[in-house]
């Protein structure tokens, strides 16, 4: 009996690890291919696809890191993501605040309007957006990417923030009101500081969304001055078509910021993604 249970236990945990490591191999192989491939040259890529690079060829990585374009694109990606996040979180927090804590005519209708925005696939709007941005002369400007991104980020952010703001007990607001705080003061001095975790969560979601954005920058930014990393990677691939190893180095370096960010913000990212998905 006890031998049997022991064997079952060993079998079970062996099975667990086999499945886990098989999945890990599936996940990690492409990324390792990029990371190591960047240290090879074309000949090594062909003849030594799996082994460690020999010799290690640092030139691909150092070339990319020495290129002004890489840093500019990195800066652009970060800048656009930060400003987008600030705008979408600020605007959403304000409107979610009144949705959550005040009663006024048209509130539900307005909220439904925002929430319905979730139903608009971004691709639907990209063509007319292009024409509208053209009219406002926002093409080839970071604002042409930031404002639409922020606008499309509103529904999700508002929904999450509203449900969080609603959960804050009315007594807190009572106390503030007795202290003579108006809505603005309550909002900025009490509500927002209390909401730091959820603000972090929605900020992370907005950052990630902006960071990954491709279609919008692709049509808005036809000039390279404001290109973001995703555009830069595809352009780089076209430019160095014969130097696969160098493209891999660029790909790896373009993935790195997201990986680092994930390592630090994992908790917020996951809680953001699961906050809605597990409800019901």
């Amino acid at each position: 009996m006890s031998v049997n249970t022991l064997r079952a236990k060993v079998l079970r945990s062996t099975g667990l690890y086999v499945a886990a490591f098989a999945t890990l191999a599936f996940v990690a192989t492409p990324i390792l291919f990029a990371a190591l491939g960047g240290f090879k040259d074309n000949q090594q890529l062909r003849e030594n696809a799996f082994g460690l690079p020999s010799p290690w060829n640092w030139a691909n990585y150092t070339d990319v890191l020495a290129a002004e374009a890489f840093w500019r694109q990195l800066f652009n990606s970060v800048f656009i993501a930060l400003v987008t996040t600030f705008i979408v979180v600020a605007a959403s927090a304000m409107v979610a605040f009144v949705f959550a804590r005040y009663n006024f005519r048209g509130r539900e209708g307005l909220f439904t309007l925002f929430a319905a925005g979730m139903m608009f696939p971004f691709a639907v709007a990209v063509l007319p957006l292009f024409i509208i941005l053209r009219t406002f002369e926002l093409l080839n400007s970071p604002l042409g990417v930031i404002l639409p991104q922020a606008a499309f980020g509103l529904p999700l952010t508002i929904i999450i923030l509203r449900s969080f703001f609603r959960a804050i007990p009315g007594e807190v607001e009572e106390a503030a009101t007795i202290d003579g705080a108006g809505p603005w003061r309550f909002f900025t001095q009490i509500l927002l500081p209390m909401s730091r975790p959820v603000l972090a969560t929605v900020s992370v979601l907005a950052l990630v969304g902006s960071w990954n954005s491709y279609l919008l920058p692709l049509v808005v930014l036809s000039r390279p001055t404001w290109w973001t990393l995703p555009l830069g990677v595809t352009q780089f691939q076209g430019q160095y078509s014969s130097e696969t190893a160098k493209v891999l180095a660029f790909v790896m370096l373009a993935m790195l910021p997201a990986l680092i960010f994930y390592a630090f913000a994992e908790r917020h990212l996951i809680s953001g993604l699961t906050s809605g998905g597990t409800k019901g």
Partner: peptide, 23 residues
């Protein structure tokens, strides 16, 4: 922090606008 952020956003936007990507 909020006020500073707002000011920064406005300033950023202003510079970004002025530049407007036109080289």
């Amino acid at each position: 922090v909020l006020a500073a952020g707002a000011a920064a956003a406005v300033a950023f936007t202003a510079t970004a606008c002025g530049d407007s990507g036109e080289s």
